[in-house]
């Protein structure tokens, strides 16, 4: 039982990171039907920006988090404007291949400037370095920090998407671009805004993962990115609550497979889940297979 609770706690921490990354995949897919392969590299860059802020500028966790999110917004929006926007009317496969190109570009440019070796985040100090022991269950302040920041960001995202004008524009564009344009919504700006939101969350996830696992490298985004993508598909690609639920589900699966089974299989199990979803319910947990129409 105690081991079970311990795994739940670890699963929630890891799941938070997947959830943050999955949200970006799902929002971008929702608005331009693109699987943005470069998204996982935004997360990697976020981790590096956080590393730089903490190590070389000596900034605290929160300042580093905010700076990293801001930097990722700039990079994410720039990628959209430079690489994807000129292809707005091209076939989907063209954009998809471009996204793979952007992804490799970001990985190897980072490798060029930062070198391929692993870097370590500085250890946290003060209260953030503490651990809480409940009997034999062990919760680190890091884990609490990750979960709290994730919840705060997701609540903010929900407020933006549900209640602000830009958020409503985002939903309108993702439902029907032409109709949105007829409302006077600027579709291009709305797409940029979507990339901005997704990239900010990926940046935050990058810093949190740096804090959680301590080590970062230029290819660190690849596997977690794929898993976050599986999480988005699991929940129903294009659906914000789906990505959130999917992130925690995949985090939990991974931790449980590693904890009770064999940690060699944890990636395989995640991808097996992808295959099963695609066969059983391609629209995902919260997705509807057909759109309601009267």
């Amino acid at each position: 039982m105690e081991q079970f609770l311990q795994q739940v706690i670890n699963g929630i921490s890891l799941g938070s990171i997947y959830a943050l990354v999955a949200l970006g995949y799902t929002m971008v897919y929702g608005i331009i039907n693109l699987i943005n392969f470069a998204h996982c590299d935004i997360y990697m860059i976020g981790a590096y920006v956080g590393y730089y802020c903490m190590t070389f500028l000596g900034l605290g966790v929160f300042a580093s988090l905010v700076i990293s999110m801001a930097a990722c917004v700039v990079i994410g929006v720039a990628i959209e404007k430079i690489a994807y926007k000129p292809l707005r009317n091209s076939p989907r496969i063209t954009v998809l291949i471009t996204a793979i190109g952007v992804s490799l570009f970001l990985e190897y440019v980072t490798m060029f400037f930062m070198k391929a070796n692993v870097r370590s985040y500085p250890p946290l100090t003060g209260i953030l370095a503490e651990n809480i022991n409940l009997g034999s269950i062990f919760i680190s302040m890091k884990q609490i920090l990750i979960v709290v920041i994730t919840i705060v960001l997701v609540v903010l995202l929900q407020i933006i998407v549900r209640h602000t004008k830009l958020g409503k524009a985002m939903r309108a564009v993702s439902l029907d671009k032409d109709a949105a344009e007829l409302m006077g919504i600027n579709v291009n700006n709305t797409i940029s805004f979507t990339f901005a939101l997704g990239s900010a969350l990926a940046g935050a996830a990058g810093v949190l993962v740096g804090i959680y696992y301590n080590s970062i490298n230029p290819l660190m985004g690849v596997i977690p990115g794929l898993k976050a993508f599986v999480a988005a598909v699991f929940g129903g690609i294009g659906l914000i609550p789906g990505a959130f639920i999917g992130g925690y589900f995949i985090g939990a699966v991974e931790v449980f497979v590693a904890g009770y089974g064999n940690s060699m299989y944890r990636d395989a199990v995640v991808f097996a889940i992808l295959i099963v979803i695609l066969i059983v319910k391609p629209a995902g947990l919260l997705g509807k297979n057909t759109r309601e129409k009267v």
């Binding site: 409503k168 939903r171 309108a172 439902l175 029907d176 032409d178 109709a179 949105a180 007829l182 759109r291 309601e292 129409k293």
Partner: peptide
């Protein structure tokens, strides 16, 4: 527009 094009999920 033709076909009404309301935003169905809103």
């Amino acid at each position: 527009p033709e076909g009404r094009r309301v935003f169905p999920a809103m």
